[in-house]
Simulated assay, not measured.
Amino acid sequence: MATKELVRLRSIKSQIEDKKSFYAYYQLGPFSLGHSATVANSLRRSLLTELAGVAISEVEIQGVTHEYSALRGVRESVLEILVNLKNIVLTSSHKLRKPALGYLRVQGPGVVRANLLVLPSYVQAVDPEQYIATLSYDGSLNIKFFVSSGAGNSINTPFTVQQQHLFVQKRGPKQRANRGSKGEIVEKNNLKIPLDTSFVPVKKVNFRIDVEERLEKPKEFIFLEIWTNGSIHPRQALHDAVKALLILFYPLQQVTHLDKIAYASRRRFKYPFLNSVSKSKIQSSDKRQRGLKRKEETRQSDLKKKRQLVVTKLFKTVV
């Protein structure tokens, strides 16, 4: 029996392009002819869809009723602030079982960056210098947000006309709006805006397949390029992708009796009368047939002995 050659992973190149971009170049092989394309496509899909990550999933900004409003003393609009918050790359030391709460409270003037976020102790920003907004002397930001873990992409509709109607109806017709010292309206109810979150830590995957014909038998090798967002190393991402594939295909190993089940079902369909006959009845009928056969054999032997006896008596009388 020929032994199978082990598949090896060799790192060709690995570099940190910037704080939010890790790059690695690997070689996988050898594979039999035709197998490498299946493995490479499966790895690429698993890297881009199955890996888990951490990101900001919901934001609540004080004094904001919809994402198209503007804040006094803030250069960016609310929509631009939401986009900047969504682009912040986070990493966590363990998987979050439920959304974690974070805050951002800043008084202008100044530049707001990711290092001013108040996060749980086990969550960190990959790039602390990532830009969020710019405040003037009379500007301030008071933001509450939730950090969630997940896989893939989460697409949400931040604000619809129906939600706006429900939000306006929260204040009754006889209630008066709260007014500040200068007469402006101060809303106590702030809108919770869900974000279109991308939890995938892998940004891009490329692969190339080469055939090595100088060996005794031609073999294929996979050359894999992986770019991550800095929250995970490409080698760890590749390990997690392979683990996800093993978990996906493991239940198929338990299906070992498909052929027997299919044969039994075909037999029941072809001979339906066998379903109503129990095994004990079949065994008893076989014993009865064997008993009748033995009785018939003994009867035939007795008749043969009687004929011989009659023949001998007749022969004696003639003589």
Rank of each mutant, 00 (worst) to 15 (best):
Q15D: 12
P30L: 03
A133Q: 03
I12F: 12
V112F: 02
F221S: 08
F223T: 08
I88Q: 01
A125V: 15
G150I: 05
E187Y: 14
G139D: 07
V74Y: 02
Y263F: 13
L96N: 04
L116P: 00
S231H: 03
L314R: 11
K170R: 14
T49S: 15
R307C: 04
S284R: 10
L248S: 10
S32Y: 13
R72S: 07
V168S: 10
R44S: 08
L104D: 00
K192H: 11
E296V: 06
L309K: 12
G291C: 04
K293Q: 14
K19V: 07
E60W: 06
V64F: 05
Q300Y: 08
L252N: 07
K19E: 04
H239V: 11
S121H: 11
S140F: 01
G230V: 09
Q15W: 02
L246S: 13
Q162G: 02
K204H: 14
I193Y: 03
Q283R: 15
A125G: 07
V74Q: 04
K219R: 15
V59H: 04
V202A: 03
S148H: 05
F249I: 12
K304W: 07
L101M: 10
Y103P: 00
R179C: 09
E216V: 12
F315V: 09
T256S: 10
K287F: 07
A262Y: 09
L191D: 00
I282M: 10
D138R: 14
D259A: 13
Q62K: 15
K95E: 11
G183K: 12
N115Y: 14
W227E: 08
N142H: 12
G108H: 01
I247W: 09
S14F: 01
T134Y: 03
V161M: 04
A262S: 13
R268G: 09
Y26Q: 05
S14L: 02
Y271G: 00
